[in-house]
Amino acid sequence: MATNVRTRDGGPATSRSASRRSHGEGLFRFLATGAGVVLLAIMAAIAVFLIGEAIPALRANQANFFTELTWDPNGQQVFGIAALAFGTVLSSALALVIATPIAVGVALFISHYAPRKLAAPLGYLIDLLAAVPSVVYGLWGLAFLVPLIRTPSQWLNEHLGWFPLFAGEGAIGGKTMVAGSIVLAIMILPIIAAISREVFLQAPKMNEEAALALGATRWEMIRMAVLPFGRPGVISAAMLGLGRAMGETIAVALIFPATFDITFEILTPHANSIAANIANGFGEATQIGRGALIASGLVLFVITLLVNMGARLIINRRKEYARAGA
């Protein structure tokens, strides 16, 4: 056994074993580098092929792709991204407004408030939220959330209808923008909470202890030592959540009523998004229709790419956050 190992690996370098060794080494290095390059190539290929398949449809478009509201590529070949992009941005922004404060609270709870022994299992509980498939959230939203928020929606509309977001006439509640946004908020909460938690845990212990030693309460210590340190991390976590909310498809495809208009009245059944439109429109799409959906997917890809790159640049700039990337 011992001799075997020596002659095969560590023995005196005869020309044969040396060449075999460098072959192996070269091949292995080639495979490793090649795999990394393949990953880069896939990212490039996504952009190239989406553009390539979108161009014929965009040529056939009878309207301005960026300003048109309606989406009728199969019939009149009139379609535009304006209403869909608006819906994507509004629903994700609402989701972010709902999810970020709760996620920061959850992160503080796990990192600074929960008893040590319970912190890990409770953190795992939050991670489980991310494990629930998106289609299940859609089903839950349809069957549970939509009926649940009907009455509160009507109350808000009646009493706070002067506020533009809560305004609207006719049918209030049901499959609305706000229902989809709440589901999106639940789905992005775990990622924002997980990254914020990591960042809060990395706040310098010295500063925390110094603050406590000077007589600060727990909240004052967090405000002085933890939050300033964690702010860039929370911001980039929120941006990652935003990117995820924008790309989320199936849950909102089930909940949004697929209308094509621009309105801030989030309690009325008018809502759609780029991703939801792709999922709902794919089944009946003609060739031009598929190209049009690919074009809208390209817009989504570019938007999420920019949001994600921004978030990553913020994280990567701080070396302290090295471990926080999720």
């Binding site: 990212m43 290929a45 996504i46 924008m246 790309g247 690919i294 997917g297 790419l305 949001v307 990553r312």
Partner: peptide, 15 residues
């Protein structure tokens, strides 16, 4: 690789 984690799943399907 980090940016790729953010590629929406629907975009992967469209690709």
């Amino acid at each position: 690789v980090d940016v790729m984690t953010g590629v929406p799943s629907v975009v992967a399907g469209l690709f």
